[in-house]
Nucleic acid binder design. Sequence first.
DNA 1: GAGTTTGAAACT
DNA 2: CAGTTTCAAACTC
Length: 775
Amino acid sequence: MDTPEKTQIAAPPVSAHEDSPVFNFIRSLSPIKPVKSAHIAQTFTSLPFTSLPSVFTSPHANFHKDPSFLRRHQSLDPSNPNRSSENHNIVCRNGDFTNGISQKREISDKKVSVEVHAEPCKEHSDFATEFPQNLRHIFYNPEGNLTGCSADAESAVETAGMSTPIIPVVVKSPEKPLPEGEGQQQNKEWPIDASDLFIFSSPNDAEAFRELIQRSPDFGTVCLSSLMSRFTPDDVTGFERLQQVDLLSREQQQIEEPPYPTEEAYEQKEMIKNLDFHNLDKFLDKYMSIQLDKNSHNDAGTSMPFDYAPVPNFHRGLRRRCLDFEIAELCKLSGDDSDYSHMALSQHDENTLVNEGQLPVKSEGDPLRCTLPGIGLHLNALATTSNDYQSVEHENLLSENQLMNTQISSSSLNLPNAHQSLHESLTSVVSEDIGSTDNGVLVVQDGSQSCAYPDGEELDHNSPQKKRRKAEHSEDGACKRCNCKKSKCLKLYCECFAAGVYCIEPCSCLDCLNKPIHENTVLATRKQIESRNPLAFAPKVIRASDSFPDTGDDSNKTPASARHKRGCNCKKSGCLKKYCECYQGGVGCSFNCRCEGCKNSFGRKDGSTLISVEAEVIEEGKENFEKSMGNQGSLEIMKQRDPIQATPSAYYRPSNQNTYSAKNEPPQSTSFVTTSSSSVLHASQNQGQLKHIALQPEFEKHYDNNNNNNKNNVGGKMPEVLRSNDTPNTVIKTTSPNGKRVSSPHSDFGSSPPLRSGRRLILKSIPSFPSLTQH
DNA sequence: GAGTTTGAAACT
DNA sequence: CAGTTTCAAACTC
């Protein structure tokens, strides 16, 4: 593997180190004295983290989800050569080194020896608080390229309650000597220039990095922690000295710990933790914007300079009350970390899509990504533990998340094409905040239930509905609050339970058993329910937006590409009220739905919701057609073909499935197909976003054939959608573990056999939900 | 806040 | 699998 970084790794001349700000900074510190190492676990136990809900001590809760880790992990995906070659930053977090290593090994044909060495940390709790979070271990990939590996011991500490040893890992290639200078640096006496410990895309990056350190001693201090990993296990002396350096530097600077004196410090550390040095320029921009913002806003928690809403320091250590069963269970199921990594990648990606789309998006397109469906629907992962719950903090948190969502939404809307680089550089930051809380528990995976306004944020500000939703949003935000009376909050009736979270104080439930104190009961009940329906705790709304290629327009990453996993069964609400789960989820109804009189504004199940342009075009076509055919027969023909199109007003009329007469036949003519392709393309009428793909396979073919001529194709993304949607759907019906119907074939308009068969095909082409089993 | 409506979940 | 019951959220007043 030929890596461009190779040349960049070459260490700068020693003189450059000595002249660097970091070197000077370190040299200015107090003399280094050896300190006796202490196991990291001891230090963590002394950390002032609040006690965690007992659920996190459950056997399910030991796996940590960290999107940024996953993000980095993704770069190792052999199936993605671009990423793997572009980014050699391997950020291993949560101690999952072996996983990263194993994947790394897959990339290369060369043998890679793995050295795992449990390196004791230090006694100083202050340092121990921070160090693990920023600890970056060094990987040498088979080419000898230096890569960083950050062990996010923090989450380990917070989740497991303690004691996950920090394990620096050094991966060396025995067949290839380390690049000149690298090996020397390992034995080189500390300190050295921090900037040469990382891979920079350009000399400017390195210089900028030095400048950054120079500007902010705190930043430099944090970097020192990262640099500690520079040492191999053999270099214990240097390691300890480095620890001492860091400690002394803190003392000298009178940096207040633990654990995070300010949000700024936390921001910086988080940024560094997620720092991708290949995108240093972006990082610097962000960092500087924070610095600038700090100057103008003392309250960094309420004004974020970019799509990054760090968890305020007062929330650190607070464990969310999520029931973190799913991933752990899946891990147990699979028994394979890499499997989990795939799943987690999927989660991360959908969180990533939060950044790129308006709403959290459920990955679906890639079968590998949808192998684990119900993973982590933890809507109120944002909620704090009841013990630590403080209304003010909670409000702050909610407001921050709302702000974050707003920012994300706006940015994604305004920057439809800003992805790849942004994706690379920011997703780890953004997604971590969106997709996980401190403890790594995923959040708002089913964002539709927690974040999405069904109306797509186009509500009248004065409307009661808006007020209500606003109140809801501000009241519970991502936090479900149930009002159960009889279910003891142990049934899916309970929103908290269904969302995979414990009930908390704001809940008004009676005889609630959905509390950490009843963890065993909760888990047992959950297991029982899952035995009936493995997807019971899966997100109700399955997003398929990541089926869009990364290069796709962000506008495609909308709830429109999502579907309710089961579909609704509305009879009276017309799918226009929150009784309807589709509507509630902000998604259109699909063929999975058995609703009657569907008027879902996000897309009717008959696919009749059209963007105005499409409607006009179709209307035009219809008029022309009527002119040519004569008014008498044309309408009848249209009715036979598509009752929705038959009447001009019907485009937005509730679909009446009964209008599909038994005479209805699957569209066959090319002209019809072309028209119907438009008709079934749902786009958000106001957002101009692709809303709904409900094409029959025949449509797909025709669409592909006629795509170039289809001017109504929203964003021109249809082919990708169709193609990408094609794969996962092959598993829709077959992978329900208990054979239970998950995508409803109930048809209330499928009275005609042709339509039935057609719909079956449609189901294959529309990813409704991921499969539990891998394929 | 009480009562009603609604549809999902649970049950048979 | 279909029909019924239970349940709690959504909604209305």
